[in-house]
Design a protein around this nucleic acid. Structure first.
Lengths: 339, 339
DNA sequence: CTGTTAGCGCATTCAG
DNA sequence: CTGAATGCGCTAACAG
């Protein structure tokens, strides 16, 4: 592998000039610059990442933190990963995977103290995420996908639940639905203050009120049985419901099953709209579910862009909210005529 | 951050002694060794990854290559990623994500020439994967998850399709099924020589023959419509089939739908067994699908272990095959009595 | 605009 | 068994 020395010799200049030509840290005459680049080309030279990092004290490597605890990693998280990697690459950065127990300070400290990364992106951020304190102590810059309860002034990107639920409800109301249910995560998860569950429901209620419709709420455990139970409860209490907004992927099979057992067809009798799910999941059903797809690409990308910006002294705002986008498939239709 | 120098001073020795104590490259007396480790502890010292890499010419960083082209990345691939990261961590390595177009030699060359990684793990390996030639040219050690058509003598781990299909067929035959269908990927994918499709079918045929049962084969496009079409064809040609082995996740919803439209219930009339799918997918259905789950954890883990072994001059064998494991859920049952 | 030089933090020769 | 001295490849002062 050619080194900067070889390039310098071939171009007839000193290594520092080559260095400056590469980094643009200092003006270099058009002429020598050309000679240098020619030489680099000829030799197929690439700056040695490690050497550059050691000297400049900037590794151009970012860590992507995720926790095996919550191994509920799904398609959405996969997209975060791949999109973050792409975004990093475009900015000339690399992404390393750090899987750490969420509360294992020692582990995070250990990884961070190796000086391998310039900053970190946090996935699966919890309402009260201990990792944040650790990183702040370590003075390691970071950006989050998701939000903490308190977390102000921190770099983050998250789903705009208000806007998302508003769009969801509007879609249904536009189809003539007036009695709409919101199928949330489980009661326990909601009570624990899990952000999406809380913000999702709040957004739903606000949207319902604004639209002058009637809203019902149900909680469901994240599995088919949970979905079925929830439908049982819902149909018992409010048999007049005509549409269900679901924010609980894993419960969906049970919902559909329970509906069909009651001879309710989708979307003729009941419209179904899945919020914050991924297209792949929506297409697993027949009919395919109309859904509000998570802007996972944008979230993954923005989080690294914010981080990189601050690392390069172009402080980013942070706190951005991105709404999910409505994709109409086959599970929503006009409200049935009231009997 | 404390450096090796600080440790040396505090321990009253030279940095070289500290270095040797850490790496075990040279005998160090028990006494000084203890003093040194004490000093490291006190200072919370961690070797600086970059400096160590530069001096030793080994970065202890591995690349995980995947191609956006095939963005068919699913839950299984997600597991490869997380498990590979875990395995790397246990071995003291880091994992960086490299997303490269599969045929973009320049891109791979560019990344590799930075000297950032010691080796690479390839995901989504194709029958005739161009990346392999690139990496060989670059002399970058690598291990693959999957196999190439020719690829002998290369480090790889893959699903043992022979064993997997054999187990699948045995399970069904054990339940009394004698006429079993294999729902493959699409004809085009099969003809293109896609490994899993080819090896899966071969394994199925062999197993059927060994079991003295009757096998049918169908191809399906990877979407619900494809699955439905395939069932139409199958039931038309062989209405006596009692079990279907499916190796096409995305087609499953269509299969189930088509079955129910023909008033065939699962598993009373027809048993369904999904091969090489992930538990999460199997549980998306009602009843949950009996399946042969991909040993994704093992594959992800083994691939990095093999790679690390060869990097550390403990050449691994490679070419290992791991079978999927049968998980009985609700979609398989005793064969119906012949009419 | 360009050259000279001193490190970055560590591994590893060579001496002792 | 330990210490002193080089250099990995590059950046960034400091001098012209």
């Amino acid at each position: 592998m050619a080194t900067i020395k070889d390039v310098a010799r071939r171009a007839g200049v000193t290594i520092s000039t080559v260095s400056y030509a590469i980094n643009g840290t200092r003006p270099v005459s058009e002429k020598t610059r050309a000679v240098i680049f020619q030489a680099m080309d000829d030799l197929g030279y690439r700056p040695h990442a490690m050497a550059r990092a050691l000297a400049s004290k900037r590794t151009r490597i970012l860590a992507l933190l995720f926790s095996p605890l919550e191994r509920g990693l799904g398609l959405t998280e996969l997209e975060f990963v791949t999109c973050a990697a792409d975004a990093a690459k475009e900015r000339g950065y690399h992404l390393v995977l750090w899987s750490t127990e969420i509360h294992d300070e020692e582990d995070i400290r250990h990884l961070s103290s190796q000086g391998l990364v310039d900053g970190a992106v946090l996935m699966e951020v919890q309402e009260d995420d201990p990792r944040i304190g650790f990183l702040q102590d370590l003075k390691l810059p970071f950006a989050m996908i998701g939000r903490t309860a308190a977390g102000e002034g921190l770099l983050s990107v998250d789903i705009d639940f208000g806007r998302t639920l508003s769009d969801a409800v509007d879609h249904l109301v536009g189809l003539g639905h007036q009695r709409i249910a919101f199928l949330n995560q489980s009661r326990e998860v909601y009570d624990s203050g899990y952000g999406p569950a809380v913000r999702g429901l709040a957004g739903f209620e606000a949207a319902i009120q604004r639209a002058g419709a009637t809203g019902y709420r149900v909680f469901a455990h994240a599995n088919p049985a949970g979905g079925a139970d929830a439908i049982g409860e819902l149909m018992n209490d409010h048999p007049d419901v005509t549409a269900i907004v679901m924010m609980n992927d894993r419960a969906i099979p049970g919902v559909i099953q329970a509906l069909s057992e009651r001879s309710l067809t989708v979307p003729e009798d009941v419209s179904l709209l899945s919020v914050a799910s991924s297209p792949r999941v929506a297409e697993m059903f027949v009919p395919a579910l109309t859904s509000m797809d998570v802007p996972s690409e944008e979230l993954g990308r923005l989080s690294v862009e914010y981080l990189v910006s601050t690392l390069e002294d172009r402080p980013a705002e942070g706190g951005d909210l991105v709404p999910c986008t409505l994709v109409v498939r086959g599970s929503t239709g006009s409200a049935p005529q009231s009997l």
